[in-house]
């Protein structure tokens, strides 16, 4: 159970209470097959935002703060693992309400040694380049009910949360220096018409597309330290294909380059 105290922010008041339930597969000591597991979570909250249409248009108390997820993992053998997660989200105006496949991928353990681990993830993967991007919808993994919108803008959630493509992850652990994690990913994200209208406006009749999204990050956690330092780079291209008749927006191409 999480309680968010009333916060005053530029005349906008948030009051949100979230009740969350974590569901884990029951473990039985006598079983010898630990190749599969299922996890899930359910979270329902109440949110009141005064002075903003961040959640709803009328500013009333709202129950549009629902996060439900179910995932499964199956270890095929020592090299390959299949895993997938489906979530249901209702965030009001923040993002499109409904189910989505968060990730569905093949985890290929390319190289394993005592202090090195190299994995390739193929399929729909989550963006793990930022501190909370890979777990932003799981309420007990983030420090606040709503993440800082300056970085984790919910209107962009369905685009930023992941992509379809491949990830290379290299991890190294050193007793002296600490833990290093290097990620590089390449993929594209399907963008729905609803998502297009969240970003452009309801008057956008065309469709947004993502043609290119390459990200890389390097994180370092010193040995015996709670601190974690990281650098993330992003290069992504988007376009908008306008509808021929009546569309207020023109065909455009946008490139984002970001350094975190």
């Amino acid at each position: 159970m999480l309680f968010q105290l009333k916060i005053k922010l530029a005349k906008t008041y948030f009051l949100a209470v979230v009740f969350s339930l974590l569901i884990n597969e029951a473990s039985v000591a006598q079983t010898t097959n630990h190749d599969s597991c299922i996890h899930g979570f359910i979270a329902q909250g109440l949110i009141n935002v005064d002075g903003s249409d961040f959640v709803n248009n009328d500013g009333d108390l709202s129950a549009e703060l629902t996060e439900v997820g179910l995932n499964g993992s199956y270890q095929l053998n020592s090299l390959f693992r299949l895993t997938s997660q489906v979530v249901y989200l209702d965030g009001g105006n923040r993002y499109d309400e409904g189910f989505r496949v968060d990730y569905a991928l093949l985890d290929w353990s390319l190289y394993q040694a005592e202090t090195w681990e190299v994995n390739v993830y193929l399929g729909r993967f989550k963006n793990n380049h930022w501190l909370y991007s890979g777990k932003r919808d799981v309420p007990f993994t983030r420090p606040s009910i709503i993440l800082p919108q300056s970085i984790y803008f919910d209107g962009f959630r369905d685009i930023a949360v992941g992509a379809d493509g491949a990830v290379l992850k290299i991890s190294h652990s050193s007793d002296l220096l600490g833990d290093f994690d290097f990620n590089v990913s390449s993929g594209t994200t399907p963008i729905s018409k609803e998502q297009t209208q969240i970003l452009y406006s309801e008057q956008a009749l065309g469709k947004m597309s993502n043609s290119h999204d390459v990200q890389t990050s390097l994180y370092w956690q010193p040995a015996n330290s709670s601190w974690r330092f990281g650098l993330a780079l992003l290069d992504a291209d988007f376009g908008y294909e306008a509808q021929e008749q009546g569309d207020r927006f023109f065909e455009t191409k946008m490139t984002f380059n970001e350094l975190w």
């Binding site: 597991c37 997938s84 985890d107 777990k135």
Partner: peptide, 23 residues
């Protein structure tokens, strides 16, 4: 939880008692 809910890996298996853990 990050491992579990981001697809990167799996968490340890939770058992309910010390004896169950030993077993």
């Amino acid at each position: 939880h990050k491992l579990t809910y981001s697809g990167l890996g799996t968490a340890p298996i939770v058992v309910q008692s010390r004896q169950a853990l030993i077993d």
